[in-house]
Design a protein around this nucleic acid. Structure first.
Length: 505
RNA sequence: GGCGGUUUAGUGUAGUGGCCUAGCACGCAACCCUCUCACGGUUGAGACUCGGGUUCGAUUCCCGGAAUCGCUACCA
């Protein structure tokens, strides 16, 4: 086989927000394309006019751009093989349907949905195929005149693929190896419907992939059963020599029970299954997204990449560039992967740690403003430096650092009981004096002075320090005490201790 | 029901006919660090779906069962 340029496509249906499984499919296509210096095509498969959802297309583009998955050509990107929206390619499909019809590889069928239903009820496991097609109303059983008359009368019809039975069809899958299916179990698939003059997925897919010079079809496992049909179609058109290679990816499964990961699982278990927040235009329902939930795009990409693939060693943290270098279809696993949301959080934690304090400040400032706080970014950056190790999300920075901006109004009861003794107020007053006389409040120096004072007086270290913390933070948590006071400053620290003495007593 | 795919700890996975006393990561537990809570570090519990066969030897190869997922639309 001659080497040809790698061209892959991501071809979703605009039926709603892009599911996280779809994101992974797009990602793998992208990694493969970039690794091979190939092209990534964005095609919209909107042959089902019934299920079209406005806004879905723009959503998909925005989501993938957010994640750093870029296309070389396609809808909204341009290119030489357009149009890239299937609804705009009607004439093209019609031409190829006629070609199949003329060659006797497809036929016209007039059976109505009701008639088909009746047949299904009449014959158990009814299938429209070589064994039954001669009992149906189609161009194989009707006279040419009758067929012409029905069409002229405007009777709705479909075009079906005439599958020859008894032939083993082999699909050579890059991930699964050779998969063989006998053509007898395939039905005469509908390729085209006169009702809307649109092809079904199968025909449109083959024609487009061929015309767009697609070299590799990387898609979800749910397509594996119809892959033999696609092979047969390439053959019927005489395109077998340039047929793309197939790779069927394992599915993303529910974290707990069984089955494919669905939108409902996210609602039920409390995590997003969509990259971006989605507002359903019909129901007004809002579904959460990874972006809005505080995920960093590089964390989502890294996490997703490892769901169904791994580099073969223990490396887990990988940038997009590294993924492009290391990715390989051969190392994709064959079995479905349960979606492990906890691991996703861990990835985000890792990526937060790799961000500089300044970068995190930029992300955190809007949240601060939302809370009604105006703060100096340089100070915010210092605070973030103290607390970022304990967060997995930018918004959790607030939970960890709020006390820097808002003085405690209450004091955690349990700790008060444990640490605020009868003599504490007196000791705290002493501490105030110590602090007042301190002209260098830098962490190490202040620590030396205060710890020295505690030791000289034989005070209980834990009790004093925790009372101190209680007064400043409001509870017994947070960073190193003297790192806090260094940033907070003398005045505010003393004010808080005074206030605690007053409130707790 | 039919057809196809899949099957290593709770989860994601590595791995090989003997180096496997099956590795790594998440999660979980303990300990260490420590003024607190975290982070971090160390350690620990935890798996080769079952039954046959091939073989000196099988988690690894073959056959069969089971489980599970997908497809079985004029949806993609």
């Amino acid at each position: 086989m001659t080497e040809r340029k790698v061209r892959v496509r991501f071809a979703p249906s605009p039926t709603g927000p892009l599911h996280i499984g779809g994101v992974r499919t797009a990602l793998y296509n992208y990694l493969f394309a970039k690794q091979n210096h190939g092209d990534m095509i964005f095609r919209i498969e909107d042959t089902d006019s019934q299920r079209f959802v406005p806004g879905a297309e723009a959503y998909i583009i925005e989501a993938l751009e957010w994640l750093g998955i870029h296309f070389d050509e396609g809808v909204s990107y341009g290119g030489n093989y357009g149009p890239y929206r299937q609804s705009e390619r009607k004439e093209i499909y019609r031409k190829y349907v006629d070609r199949l019809l003329d060659a006797g590889k497809a036929y016209i069928a007039f059976d109505t949905p009701a008639e088909l239903d009746a047949k299904r009820n009449e014959i158990p496991n009814f299938q429209y195929d070589a064994s039954t097609r001669m009992q149906m109303r189609n161009s194989l059983t009707l006279s040419k005149e009758e067929v012409d008359r029905l069409i002229a009368d405007g009777t709705q019809y479909v075009v079906r693929f005439k599958i020859e039975p008894g032939e083993d069809v082999v699909v050579d899958d890059l991930i699964r190896g050779k998969v063989t299916i006998n053509s007898s179990i395939l039905d005469d698939k509908v390729l085209y419907k006169s009702a809307d003059n649109l092809p079904t997925y199968h025909l449109a897919n083959i024609v487009d992939d061929h015309l767009m010079l697609v070299s590799h079809v990387i898609r979800g496992e749910e397509w594996l059963p119809s892959a033999p049909l696609h092979v047969l179609l390439y053959r019927a058109f005489g395109w077998e020599d340039s047929m793309p290679r197939f790779a069927h990816l394992p599915l993303l499964l529910k974290p707990d029970g069984k089955g494919k990961l669905s939108k409902r699982d996210g609602d039920r278990l409390g995590f997003p299954v969509f990259p971006l927040e989605w507002h359903d235009p019909k129901t007004g329902e809002v579904s959460s997204g990874y972006r809005e939930s505080g995920y960093l795009p590089e964390a989502v990409v890294n996490f997703l990449a490892l769901l169904g693939w791994n580099p073969g060693n223990d490396q887990e943290i990988m940038s997009m560039d590294e993924l492009i270098k290391l990715f390989s279809l051969e190392k994709c696993s064959k079995s479905g992967a349960k979606f492990d949301y906890e691991k996703g959080k861990w990835f985000n934690h890792k990526y937060i740690q790799e961000k500089s304090n300044e970068e995190l400040t930029t992300l955190f400032m809007p949240i601060l403003r939302e809370k009604g706080i105006e703060a100096d970014p340089a100070t915010v950056a210092r605070i973030i430096g103290l607390v970022k190790g304990r967060v997995s999300f930018v918004k959790e920075l607030w939970d960890q650092a709020a006390f820097f901006f808002v003085a405690p109004t209450s004091y955690e009861e349990k700790s008060v009981k444990k640490r605020w003794k009868e003599d504490t107020p007196a000791i705290m007053r002493e501490l105030i004096e110590i602090l007042r006389n301190l002209d260098d409040l830098s962490s190490a120096h202040a620590e030396g002075v205060v710890l020295g004072w505690i030791e000289r007086n034989g005070y209980h270290l834990g009790n004093v320090m925790n009372a101190f913390r209680l007064a400043v933070v409001g509870e017994c948590k947070g960073p190193h005490m003297f790192d806090i006071t260094e940033i907070m400053g003398k005045e505010e620290t003393i004010k808080r201790i005074e206030r605690a003495i007053e409130h707790i007593g």
